[in-house]
Each structure stands twice: as structure tokens, then as C-alpha cells.
Measured scan of single mutants.
Amino acid sequence: MASQGTKRSYEQMETDGERQNATEIRASVGKMIDGIGRFYIQMCTELKLSDYEGRLIQNSLTIERMVLSAFDERRNKYLEEHPSAGKDPKKTGGPIYKRVDRKWMRELVLYDKEEIRRIWRQANNGDDATAGLTHMMIWHSNLNDTTYQRTRALVRTGMDPRMCSLMQGSTLPRRSGAAGAAVKGVGTMVMELIRMIKRGINDRNFWRGENGRKTRSAYERMCNILKGKFQTAAQRAMMDQVRESRNPGNAEIEDLIFLARSALILRGSVAHKSCLPACVYGPAVASGYDFEKEGYSLVGIDPFKLLQNSQVYSLIRPNENPAHKSQLVWMACNSAAFEDLRVLSFIRGTKVSPRGKLSTRGVQIASNENMDAMESSTLELRSRYWAIRTRSGGNTNQQRASAGQISVQPAFSVQRNLPFDKPTIMAAFTGNTEGRTSDMRAEIIRMMEGAKPEEMSFQGRGVFELSDERAANPIVPSFDMSNEGSYFFGDNAEEYDN
């Protein structure tokens, strides 16, 4: 993207840094990872977990959730003011799984939030270390993106479920800051804005008074975040219109849905970061690795190297396929839920299948599930090659597409044709070009129609051997075009429920 120079890199967003050079960025990201790792080690000690239990991804998720809940100030305040039966607002906890007599047992633990905050700050040299908290939120978000298709949420806001490739980060909490905003897809931002506008339509006082002023500035800020994701002048001009509207209503909703559809071809720039579970960072720190000293990046080879040398386990339900569970977590670790499966298959070195073909449910185990038949197995999170994460949407291309997802959002900077089903997408653009945004709409449609099938995206960008740390010898991959490109292809993934 041309304006790259004016933006802070995501590592800076990730670490609240002012302008830093590459070495400083690597050190501050490393410091953040160190903090998460030290916190995780301490929690495993508190909970008396064995090494194996500490490497269980379900335990990692519970521990991450506990610290996120302990620092969720708004919710904590709300819980104190609106006490609900049987919930102690000062405590947080969740299921911890232990191996007892050759069987997995679930144990519900409860801790004072104050105590968890103390352990977290102690692991982070006394700081609140917001960057580390956001990092864990993005890992949870990436896992949700890989596990669930947001059909219901899309339909509720009037969008087409086939636009799911635009929904990265749709389950990120509001408090995820600049680093969170960077990884949100165009569809996620559109959905947040539509929800806001709908509230304004239904509630006369939404934009009024002292609160209304705050609401208005939040609305304009979200519009600017979305505008910054678009790469064409016409899309940005249309966002200006939406932002400046005196009284946002149905016309703005129409414009936003139009823009979301246009992003299936004229893709937005959305950041991709490899955020790993805390149970990967903990053992690495415990083994003596100093992330701050060595430096770390979320968008280069580092996460690949770390996963190459990590042992992570997962509980497996009786009829689940461990290899499929591994694929789910591998995609989440690489922030690749909406990437082209052919690119992923090449990088991973084994075939990556669409969601609907995987015999696996989510990673988390519900409290009512029976533990008797639970097994555990090693997650295979290694890769054959590594590639640089991208934040450009890439230019655009036609490809055989599917009944489910009709476009992709690249996660890796790797040369390819970008699949999208042009006739299906263009069919949504018939007729409606009147109104105050008509010239911009016409211009956007013209650009979409001009998108050429034979153009290559990320020209000359390749993948790298894991021994090639400096990215000196790019390998331009070859793809098996007979395979499906979309992950949520004609899909039956479970729906995400809060």
C-alpha cells in the first residue's frame, strides 16, 4: 500500500510504541512475548500442572481467558453494579484439565481477579502490559475465525453469508486497541457500523446529549479505520460520505453494504499476525530463551520457528480426527482463516481442507461434555516452508469459486491468482447506482469489472525454506488448481455463540 510509510507498523501498534527502528520493534515485541511466557509459567505453578498438562491447549485457553477477564475493567465495573446470582464479580476462573488415573478430569478453578492481575503485572515488570493482553485477544479471535462461520451475524446486519472472507476479527472485544483495529476485516468494521446506525434509528437519543457526542466521535473513528483499509480513492470518498452524514440511517447502511461487497474484489488491507497460545510461549521462556534479547516478529519467520520446536497437546472428542484438529489450530496460529487453501497447503506441506470436510468441533470443551471418553493427542503445528504475512489485500483475480465463501483475504505475501467468483459478486451490483453516491458507485463498479483474471497478485513473492531466515531465496510455489480455494466452501461450520 502506498501510504505504508505514514502508518505505524503493526509491531508498533502491538507494543504501543512511538516510531521505533526494526531492532527496537523486535525487542519490544519480544518483551511482550516474554511477559506472556513468564505469566503462563507462574500460572502453571499456581495450578500445580504437570509439564504435559501445561502444554494442553484447553488449559492455555482457560488461563488466557482468566487474565483477560481480570483486566476487563468495563465488564468488571458492570458486574459490580449489576450483581447477578451466583456470579462473584471479583473472581474469575474456568475449567482446568488434569490427568488422573490414566483419565482426563475437569476441575473448575476460581481465583481472585486481583490475584491474577498481581501475577500478570509481576510477570511483566510491574506494568499492565496491555500489548500482551491484546495479543491474547487476537489469538482467540484468530481461533474463532478458523472455527466458526459468522453466517447468522452477517444475515442479521443485512449482509450476504458468502462475504465471510471479510469477517476477520469479528469476535475481537471493543477494547483491543490499535492492534485489534489493524486485524479487523472490512466486513467486521461494516458490521460494527451498521449495528451502531441501527441503534440510532431505533433509539432517538442515541446521537443526542453528552453521551451522543461520545457516540458520534466513536462512529467517526470507526469510519476512519474502515476508510484506511480501502485502497481505492472511490471507496475512500464513499467512506467520507458515510462519516460526514448528519443523521446516519438506511442510506448509510446501503452504502456500507455496497462497500463491503466491493471489497470482495477491490480488497481492503487487513493486517495478519501470528499470535500463538500462551502454552507455546511459556515452555520456550522456561527453556531459557530470551525473546527480548533475541527479538521477535509476528509477521516473519519467528512464529514458524517457534511452532517448529513446540509440543502442544489437545483434548480430542471420541469421533474427532486429531489431524483435522491440528489443521484448525495451525490455521489459527498463522492467522489464515480466509487465505486461499492452495497457498496454505503449499506452505504447510500437507493438504489443507475446507472447514466442512474437517471432523472436528471447536477447541474448547463445553462444561456439560462427558470427560470419560476424552483422549488427548499432539497437535501437528509444523510447516514445510515459511512466508511473510501481508497486510495488503493483493490485486484481484477471477477463479472458480464456491457456493460458500466467494473470495479470499490473503494472509501471506505469496504470488498467486486470487480466487473470487466474479459473476456471483457482480450480480449483486445491478441497477442500484442512484442517489448521492452514484458517481462513486459507478466508478467502483467500473474498477471491479476491469479486474483481470490473468493478473498475478504479489508478483514474484515466494515462500522460503525454514533454514532461509533472511528470506534470501524465494520459492514461487505451484498450486494444484483442481483443489478448492475457499475454506468455508459450501460450508456447515458451527455458528459462533458468545
Rank of each mutant, 00 (worst) to 15 (best):
S353L: 01
M13H: 03
E434K: 04
H135F: 07
N124T: 09
M374Q: 10
N247M: 04
A284P: 01
A181T: 05
E81L: 00
K305L: 01
K452D: 09
S50V: 00
A387K: 11
K273I: 14
G180C: 05
R391V: 08
L266W: 12
R446E: 15
F71R: 04
I388D: 07
K90R: 15
A271V: 15
N124S: 13
F230W: 04
F489Q: 10
H140G: 04
R441N: 11
A22I: 06
A70P: 01
Q415K: 08
A271Q: 09
A27F: 05
D101W: 09
D88V: 12
N59E: 07
L166R: 05
N125Y: 06
M167H: 06
C44D: 07
K198E: 13
G37C: 08
E18I: 01
D290R: 09
F338E: 10
K357R: 04
N368V: 14
I25K: 01
T62R: 01
N76G: 01
S314W: 12
T232N: 15
D240A: 12
T6V: 11
H272N: 08
N334W: 06
A337F: 04
I197L: 15
K229H: 11
I425C: 14
G86K: 00
R118K: 00
W139G: 09
M456F: 12
E11C: 10
G485C: 00
E292N: 13
N250E: 02
H140T: 11
I197W: 08
A373Q: 04
I406L: 00
I36L: 01
T350K: 06
G349M: 08
E494C: 01
G435I: 14
V280C: 03
V29N: 14
E46W: 10
G5S: 01
A278V: 07
H135Y: 06
N211D: 09
T62M: 11
H82I: 04
K422V: 00
G462A: 06
I41K: 00
E380I: 08
A70I: 14
R26P: 07
Q405G: 10
E449D: 13
T146I: 13
W207F: 12
H135N: 06
S84K: 00
E449V: 12
N370S: 06
V67W: 10
M159Y: 03
S326N: 07
I388N: 10
D290V: 01
Q4T: 02
R243Q: 01
L154I: 15
A251D: 05
D101L: 01
G282Y: 08
S262V: 09
A22Y: 02
T433K: 00
G435E: 12
E244H: 10
Y296P: 06
N492H: 03
I36S: 07
A234T: 14
Y40C: 14
R436H: 03
A233M: 12
F464T: 13
W386K: 11
V352A: 02
A366C: 07
P354L: 08
N202C: 09
Y148L: 11
E46V: 12
Q149H: 04
D290H: 03
G187K: 14
R355I: 10
A260D: 10
S69A: 05
Q12C: 00
A263W: 09
E53K: 08
T188F: 13
R55G: 03
I388Y: 07
K452H: 00
S262F: 05
S402E: 00
L172P: 08
G94H: 08
P303V: 02
F304K: 12
P477L: 13
L133R: 06
T430D: 04
G177E: 02
N21T: 15
D302S: 03
R243F: 15
Q398P: 02
D128W: 04
Y148H: 03
A337H: 08
S269N: 10
A22T: 15
D34A: 00
R389Y: 11
G435V: 08
L68N: 01
K48W: 09
L154K: 09
L298H: 09
F464C: 03
M196S: 01
A179R: 10
L266G: 07
P283M: 00
Q308A: 00
Q20P: 00
N417L: 00
P477I: 11
Y296V: 12
G394L: 10
R246I: 13
R236A: 12
P477T: 11
V476S: 14
G485Y: 14
V29G: 07
F71I: 12
E115T: 12
R117L: 00
K98C: 13
L466D: 02
E107N: 04
R102T: 01
I445L: 14
D34W: 09
A263Y: 09
K351V: 02
D51R: 00
G435Q: 11
E455I: 13
L276S: 12
D16I: 08
Q405M: 02
S245W: 08
R26N: 09
E24G: 12
F346K: 04
L315D: 01
F258I: 04
A373S: 07
S457H: 03
T215F: 14
N205D: 13
E80K: 01
E292C: 01
P453F: 13
S297F: 06
E11H: 06
T396E: 14
Y78D: 15
S310E: 09
V285P: 09
G187T: 08
M196N: 14
N142M: 11
R446W: 12
P173V: 15
E443T: 13
G349A: 14
R26Q: 08
A472P: 06
M196H: 09
D491G: 03
P83T: 02
A237P: 05
Q241P: 14
G187N: 04
G200K: 13
R384V: 04
M222I: 06
M137S: 07
